[in-house]
Simulated scan of single mutants.
Amino acid sequence: MEWSAYLSFLAIAAAVVLTPGADVAVVLKNSLMSGRRGGVAAALGVTTAVGIQGVLTAAGLGVLIAQSQPLLQTIRWIGVAYLAWLALQALRSAWRGEYSGLVDTSGVAARGYRQGFLTNITNPAVLMFYLALFPQFMTADMSVWWLGAMAMTLPALGIVQLVTLALVIDGASRWLQRRRVRRVLDSVTGVALGGLGLRVALQ
């Protein structure tokens, strides 16, 4: 694989990362609820899941998963249910409008990581992206290093974007924690997560 080909792959991956999705919504949700710690943990969870899917695709296991319709459908519906649950949480929070400031407990990081990981590991769109894109750049003599670079490109770009988002939200926390602003953001996040769940359900 030549550098010119990798740069083309990088450009496509960057365009995908910049497209808002469930990953952005779950990092936004955790950043608002738990500050920098929760947002960064959610970002790490997201990129861990994306990295696992990239490695599976590079190893050829992604094709087996995609060809197993019962398994793929099970993963898809788990993802739909989880997105719906997160959406209901956000909408319920917006409806009640009861905010007591940022949560700062020992469980914040674990909860954020778990939500970020589950949101993306159950999203078949990530796996399908890899399966659609990888064959266009893979060759019979491609080294394991190039395969690894391709598999880790998307999570590397994603962690930069999502951690930056978490830090920006944390920096503006004083304004964002106003009750009216929180209710609007929770409403938008809930609708976005619900819409994403519906889109996955209809795929």
Rank of each mutant, 00 (worst) to 15 (best):
E2D: 14
S4F: 10
L7E: 12
F9T: 02
A11E: 03
I12L: 12
I12D: 03
A14F: 08
V17R: 02
L18T: 06
T19N: 09
T19P: 04
G21Y: 01
G21D: 02
V24H: 09
A25D: 02
S31F: 00
G35S: 08
V40E: 15
A42M: 05
T47G: 10
T48V: 11
V50L: 07
I52E: 01
I52K: 00
V55L: 13
A58E: 15
A59F: 05
G60A: 10
Q67I: 09
L72W: 06
R76N: 09
Y82F: 12
Y82E: 00
A87E: 08
R96S: 14
G97P: 00
E98K: 12
T105D: 07
T105G: 13
A109H: 04
R114Q: 07
Q115W: 02
G116Q: 10
L127W: 05
F129H: 01
F129Q: 01
L131P: 11
L131F: 10
L133T: 13
F137M: 02
M138C: 11
M142E: 11
P155W: 11
P155D: 13
L157H: 02
L162K: 13
T164A: 09
A166N: 04
D170P: 04
R183D: 00
V184M: 11
V184R: 10
G190T: 08
L193T: 05
L193G: 05
V200M: 12
L202P: 00
